[in-house]
């Protein structure tokens, strides 16, 4: 499905509200100029934390402190609250820019579900929490010969709005090389064309997320079976 002629339908997908927040900020930069609908998708990884060994039932918070995972019932409450916060931010954004919105929540493997859901949307932003407050750069992985026109303009738009610089990696590089470089780059956002670039499969996208440690903006989702 496509949106208005010049506007796109954007899906924000994340495993938690903490991960969704930076993605929502990216969407805010686009909502007023390039987006007709915003969707939210929260995929809760089935962690079953109470089935983990006790030593593994600990979390390291973003401030670096170690804490025990809460009881299952408390955990459920926190997940509910997390989902509610995601939805509220989404609706607020949509109302602010008078665009349509929707929100779904489902269990499963996050990246798999993200990719699957993105078939109905033009753009997908996968959320990922950022560590530290450094202003990173907007990284584009741009195919050289088969240029995706949207990527540079989107990159510039977002960079201008967030006062970030841009950086470009050639899609002709091997995926491993790209991931290696991203590991050491302080990135704010990574833009890819999953239909054309070297990173296409859900597994590659998962690895991309782990390497970049920031939201990933997929212009064209990979083809799914």
């Amino acid at each position: 499905m496509t949106g208005d002629q010049n506007r796109k339908r954007l899906l924000i997908a994340a495993e938690s509200f903490v991960d969704a927040r930076p993605a929502i900020q990216i969407a805010r930069h686009l909502a007023g100029v390039a987006v007709s609908d915003i969707g939210g998708l929260l995929v809760e990884r089935a962690l079953e934390t109470d089935t983990l060994p006790s030593f593994a039932q600990r979390v390291v918070t973003s401030s670096g402190s170690l804490a025990l995972l809460p009881q299952a019932s408390r955990m459920r409450q926190m997940l509910e609250s997390d989902a509610k916060a995601f939805q509220e931010q989404l609706t607020r954004l949509a109302r602010q820019f008078s665009v349509g919105w929707s929100f779904e929540r489902e269990p499963g493997d996050p990246v798999e579900r993200f990719i699957h859901a993105s078939a109905k949307w033009d753009w997908l932003v996968i959320g990922h929490r950022r560590i530290g407050s450094y202003r990173g750069c907007i990284v584009t992985i741009q195919p050289e010969n088969q240029a995706t026109p949207d990527i540079p303009s989107l990159s510039d738009l977002i960079a201008r709005a967030s006062h970030a610089r841009t950086m470009s990696l050639s899609a002709s590089l091997p995926a491993e090389e790209i991931l290696k470089r991203l590991e050491l780059t302080c990135a704010e956002l990574v833009l890819i064309d999953a239909a054309r670039g070297p990173i296409r499969s859900p597994e590659q996208i998962r690895m991309l997320l782990e390497a970049a440690r920031c939201p990933v903006f997929i212009i064209r989702p990979p083809e799914t079976s």
Partner: peptide
């Protein structure tokens, strides 16, 4: 693993 509370290993 990323959870709403933080990172899990």
């Amino acid at each position: 693993l990323r959870t709403p509370m933080g990172f899990m290993l």
